[in-house]
Design a protein around this nucleic acid. Structure first.
Length: 794
RNA sequence: GGGAGUUUAGCUCAGAUGGCUAGAGCAUCUGCCUUACAAGCAGGGGGUCAUAGGUUCGAGCCCUAUAACUCCCACCA
C-alpha cells in the first residue's frame, strides 16, 4: 500500500496514468484466438475545425462501452478514424487561408488541405488521448489516405460493374455556392420570406393567371400544368399559353399531381424551379431551357437579366412585370426552402452528368436490413425507416470538387463509354494518369473524370476501411463484417448509418454491423443545438479538461439516457463530478489504510454484516450489467452510485469502522473478516467505475490492489462474475441500515452530535435474524454509541 | 401536412413486464467539527406525475382525445 495524498490531483495523475497505459500497451490490439472479437465502428469525425462538447458526449459514451465490452472478455477492436476529405475540409481550408478552391491550382489547394487537416487531426488525437480513450491508435485510418482511396475506388468500381452505380445526365440537386452536385441527405430546410407573384399568361387571347415564387425563371418555362379534374381549366388542355414578358408559346398539359387549391391551380413548369419540375421534365420528356448557370448567375442569352444572380434577377423581373402592368398581385408568404447543409445556400436543380448509386429500387431490401440490426434505443429504427420510405433521389455520389477520392474513370472521347482503372493500379487519379486501352468503338482517346467522390461514399464503407487494417493483424475478413457495433449520434442516421447500410447491402449482401448505438446530441439550452455560428458553446473541450480533468467530464457526461438529447449545464455537472471524485478518493484512502496487514490468502469466516456488503455489491454488479448490455451507461452509473454512496459509505464503512480500528475490542478474526469484505467490495466497485473514470480507478488500483491482484492495470481485469445473490442477507442488511438510520434521526431531531451516547437501542427483528444481530452487536454499539441493545421478536 | 420523442419537486432527471407512503442530485431550511471526506455527515420541507376521459380490485406506467415543447420528413408551382 502506498501513501495517499490528502487531496487528489487529477490533472497530474491523469497524465501519469495515460503515460503508464501507453508505456505498457494496455489498450494495444492483439490477435487472440481464445477471445471473441468485438469490433466498434467509431465515427471518423469530419475535420472541419474545432470540436465541441457535443463530440465529447457522443464519443465518451462509446468509449465507456468499449471498456465494458473489453471487461466482458471480448477482444475489442476499437479503432479511430478521421474523415478528412470532402467539402467540410475544403471549406475549412478556404476559411483558414482565405482562398476559394476554384481560384487556385488544384494541386496547390489539395496540398493546403492535407496540411490543414493534419494539423487538426493532431489536435483531435491529443484531445481524445487527454480524455483517456482506450482506442488503439495504431488502428487509426483516414478517409483520404492512399489505402482508403484504394478501398473506396475498388468498391466504386465493383458497384459500377455490377450495375448498382451508374452515370446519367439528368437534373440534379446543385449548390451554386460550392458549385457541385449534392445528395438529398445533404439538404436542410430554411424558412424564408418571399412573394407569391400572380402573373398573366395568355391563352386564346384571354388571361390565365399563374402564381409563382420564381418569376426569374419565366424564360425557362417549358409548359403549363393543370389538374385534369379541374373544371375551370379542362378546356385549356392541349392549347398553348403565351409567357408574359418573353412572349413565347408553351403547351398546356394535364397532370394529376397539380394541387387544385394551391395558388390559382395552374403551375408554370420551368427548368428547373423545384423537384416537381424535374419530375415532369423526365415524365413528359420536356425540353431544357437554360436560365441559371452552375455558379448561380443567369445565362448570357436570357434577356433582361443575363449576368445577374438569382435574387437580383428576381427583383428585376418583378420590376419589369410591374412596369408593364403584368403583375396582378403579389402576396408575401413564408415558406421552407431546401438549402445546402454545408453553406446554407438555396439549392438549385440543374441538368448534368453525374454518378449515382441505386437506392430507389432497393427500398424493401434496405428496410429488411434495418430489421436485422439491433437498434439501441429501438425507437431510432423508425427514423431510418422513414428516411428510406421517403427517398426521392438516387444517391448522387459525384462532386465537382477537389479534395477527395477521385473517380477511377476515363470516358471514351468518341462514344463516351466509361472505362475503369485496373485494380492493381489503384489508387489512381485519372487527371494524372493516361488510360491505356482501346474502346469497343475503336477509339484510343480518353477523357479523365475530374469529379471526386462524395465524402460519404468513402466514410460509408468504414467497415471495409477497418477490415483493411484488421487484415494486418491476421483477422479474417469474414469474421470482421458484420462488425459488432456502430456508435454514432442520431442526427446522422439518414447519412452515415443509411449510406453504410446501402454499401454493405451491395458489397456483402448483409448488414454492416449487428448493432447500432445512437447517442443523443448536446443542446446549448433546451431546444438549441450547439453550433459555431451561434457561438453558444461555453468552454472548448480543451479548456474544459484543463479546468476540470478528464474523469470529471467522463463521469459527468455519462449521466445520459441513450438516444436522448441533453443539455450541458457545465456548473452542475462539474460540481457533481467533483463531489463524487472526492468521495471516492477519501473512501478508498480509508479502506486501503486498513489493509496494510491484509492477508488475502487467509481463509476467514465472514460476519453476517460483512457477507451483506459482499452480497450487495454483487447485486449491484448484476444490475449495472443489465443496463450496460443495453448500452444504458447512465442508468448503470446510477445504480453503482447508489450502492457506493448509500450502502458502502453511509452504512457499511460507518458500521465496521470501529472493528477495523480496534481489534483489541472486537477480536482479530473479526477485523480480518472486515478486511476481506472491504477489500473485495472496493475492488469490485473500482472495476465497475473503471469504465467511467479510468484514471482515478487505475491510480487507486496501482496504490492498493496491484500487488495483491497481480495484473498490471485495472483495465486488464474482467468484469466481476457473480452468482445469485442471497435475498435473506440483503433483507438483514436493510434492517441494520434502518437501525442505524433511526439512531441518527433521533440524534439529529434532538440537535445532538452523532457521538452522543445513547442509553439503549431496542431492535425488533424476526427470529431468524436474531443470531445475525447478535454477531453484529458490537458494530452497532460502536456505530450508534449505544450502551446496550435489547431485542424483541417481530 | 406525415412521423417520432418529451411533459414527474424551484432546476436537471430516474421511475422494465400496472402493485408498499412516487425517488435521486442540485437548490432551500435545520442540526452536527463524527480519528476517510466541512469539498463532509444527519435530517426536514417541497409533487393533483401536462389536461380530460376510459380500462382495472389497483394507473406515473395501458387505451382514447387534447395541449405545449423538441426533433425528423414533406411543403419552393
Amino acid at each position: 500500500m502506498q501513501e495517499f495524498e490528502k487531496h487528489y490531483n487529477g490533472s497530474l495523475v491523469e497524465k501519469e496514468m495515460q503515460k503508464y497505459w501507453e508505456d505498457n500497451g494496455v489498450y494495444k490490439f492483439k490477435k487472440d484466438p481464445s477471445k471473441k472479437i468485438f469490433s466498434i465502428d467509431t465515427p471518423p469525425p469530419t475535420v472541419n475545425g474545432k470540436l465541441h462538447i457535443g463530440h465529447i458526449f457522443s464519443y465518451t459514451q462509446a468509449e465507456i462501452m468499449a471498456r465494458y465490452k473489453r471487461m466482458q472478455g471480448f477482444n475489442v477492436y476499437y479503432p479511430f478514424g478521421f474523415d478528412d476529405n470532402g467539402l467540410p475540409s475544403e471549406r475549412l481550408v478556404e476559411r483558414e487561408n482565405n482562398i476559394k478552391a476554384f481560384n487556385v491550382p488544384r494541386s496547390v489547394f489539395c496540398e493546403k488541405c492535407i496540411e490543414t487537416t493534419q494539423k487538426y487531426e493532431q489536435e483531435f488525437k491529443d484531445l481524445w488521448k487527454s480524455l483517456g480513450f482506450s482506442c488503439d491508435w495504431d488502428l487509426c485510418y483516414s478517409t483520404v489516405s492512399k489505402t482508403s482511396q484504394k478501398v473506396s475506388q475498388k468498391a466504386f468500381i465493383d458497384l459500377a460493374k455490377n450495375g448498382h452505380a451508374y452515370i446519367k445526365e439528368s437534373p440534379v440537386l446543385w449548390c451554386t455556392e460550392c458549385q457541385t452536385s449534392i445528395a438529398q441527405a445533404e439538404l436542410e430546410t430554411k424558412e424564408i420570406d418571399t412573394y407569391f407573384n400572380y402573373i398573366p399568361f395568355i391563352v386564346d387571347g384571354k388571361v390565365l393567371e399563374i402564381a409563382t415564387t420564381r418569376p426569374e425563371l419565366l424564360y425557362g418555362v417549358v409548359c403549363v400544368f393543370v389538374n385534369p379534374e379541374d373544371e375551370r381549366y379542362k378546356n385549356l388542355i392541349g392549347k398553348t399559353a403565351k409567357v408574359p414578358l418573353y412572349n413565347f408559346e408553351v403547351p398546356i398539359i394535364a397532370d394529376e399531381s397539380v394541387a387544385i387549391d394551391k395558388g390559382t391551380g395552374v403551375v408554370m413548369c420551368a427548368t428547373f424551379g423545384d423537384a416537381t419540375d424535374a419530375e415532369w421534365y423526365q415524365k413528359y420528356n420536356l425540353p431544357y431551357k437554360k436560365v441559371i448557370l452552375p455558379n448561380g448567375i443567369i445565362a448570357d442569352d436570357v434577356p433582361y437579366i443575363a449576368g445577374k444572380n438569382v435574387f437580383d434577377a428576381r427583383m428585376e423581373i418583378v420590376r419589369l412585370l410591374k412596369e408593364n402592368n403584368l403583375l396582378l398581385k403579389s402576396d408575401k408568404i413564408t415558406h421552407m426552402v431546401a438549402v445546402h447543409e454545408r453553406c446554407g445556400t438555396s439549392v438549385e436543380i440543374l441538368p448534368s452528368k453525374q454518378w449515382y448509386i441505386d437506392v430507389l429500387n432497393h427500398k424493401d431490401e434496405l428496410l429488411a436490413m434495418g430489421n436485422k440490426i439491433k437498434w439501441n434505443p429501438a425507437s431510432m429504427q423508425t427514423r431510418y425507416n422513414l428516411w428510406v420510405e421517403n427517398l426521392k433521389w438516387d444517391w448522387c455520389i459525384s462532386r465537382q470538387r477537389y479534395f477527395g477520392v477521385p473517380f477511377p474513370v476515363w470516358y471514351c472521347k468518341k462514344c463516351g463509354k466509361p472505362h475503369f482503372a485496373k485494380e492493381e493500379d489503384l489508387p489512381v487519379n485519372p487527371l494524372e494518369k493516361e488510360y491505356n486501352g482501346v474502346c469497343e468503338c475503336g477509339s484510343k482517346e480518353f477523357v479523365p473524370e475530374s469529379a471526386v467522390l462524395d465524402t460519404w461514399a468513402t466514410s460509408s464503407i468504414s467497415p471495409l476501411l477497418n477490415q483493411e487494417k484488421a487484415k494486418e493483424y491476421g483477422l479474417d475478413s469474414d469474421e470482421f463484417i458484420p462488425m459488432g457495433v456502430r456508435t454514432q449520434a442520431h442526427e446522422i442516421i439518414r447519412t452515415w448509418a443509411f449510406y453504410t447500410i446501402v454499401r454493405s447491402m451491395y458489397y456483402k449482401k448483409d448488414i454492416p454491423w449487428k448493432e447500432i448505438m445512437l447517442s443523443g446530441i448536446v443542446l446549448a439550452k433546451p431546444g438549441e443545438k450547439i453550433s459555431k455560428s451561434k457561438s453558444n458553446a461555453t468552454l472548448s473541450p480543451k479548456e474544459l479538461i484543463d479546468k476540470c480533468t478528464a474523469d470529471y467530464i467522463r463521469y459527468g457526461t455519462a449521466n445520459v439516457k441513450l438516444g436522448l438529447d441533453t443539455f450541458f449545464d457545465e456548473q452542475n455537472v462539474m460540481e457533481t463530478s467533483k463531489r463524487f471524485i472526492n468521495k471516492l478518493w477519501n473512501s478508498s484512502k480509508f479502506v486501503l489504510s486498513h489493509l496494510f496487514d491484509f492477508n488475502p490468502n487467509e481463509k476467514v469466516e465472514l460476519l453476517p454484516i460483512d457477507k451483506w456488503i459482499v452480497e450487495k455489491v454483487n447485486k449491484t454488479v448484476k444490475e449495472a450489467q443489465g443496463y450496460l448490455d443495453n448500452y444504458e451507461i447512465g442508468l448503470a452509473r446510477k445504480v453503482i452510485d447508489e450502492f457506493f454512496w448509500a450502502d458502502l459509505c453511509d452504512d457499511y464503512i460507518e458500521i465496521v469502522k470501529d472493528r477495523l480500528y480496534k481489534p483489541e475490542v472486537h477480536g482479530e478474526q473479526n477485523r480480518k473478516s472486515a478486511q476481506h469484505a472491504i477489500f473485495y467490495t472496493l475492488l469490485t466497485l473500482l472495476k465497475m467505475y473503471s469504465i467511467y473514470i479510468p484514471h482515478l480507478t487505475e491510480y487507486i488500483y496501482l496504490k492498493g490492489f496491484k500487488d495483491i491482484v497481480g495484473e498490471k492495470s485495472i483495465h486488464l481485469l474482467s468484469w466481476p462474475k457473480v452468482e445469485n445473490t442471497d435475498a435473506e442477507l440483503l433483507e438483514f442488511g436493510k434492517l441494520v441500515s434502518d437501525v442505524v438510520g433511526d439512531a441518527r434521526r433521533y440524534k439529529t431531531e434532538n440537535n445532538l452530535s452523532m457521538k452522543t451516547e445513547m442509553e439503549k437501542i431496542e431492535i425488533k427483528t424476526p427470529n431468524k435474524f436474531m443470531e445475525y444481530f447478535k454477531q453484529t452487536e458490537k458494530d452497532l454499539i460502536a456505530c450508534t454509541s449505544a450502551q446496550k441493545i435489547v431485542y424483541t421478536e417481530k
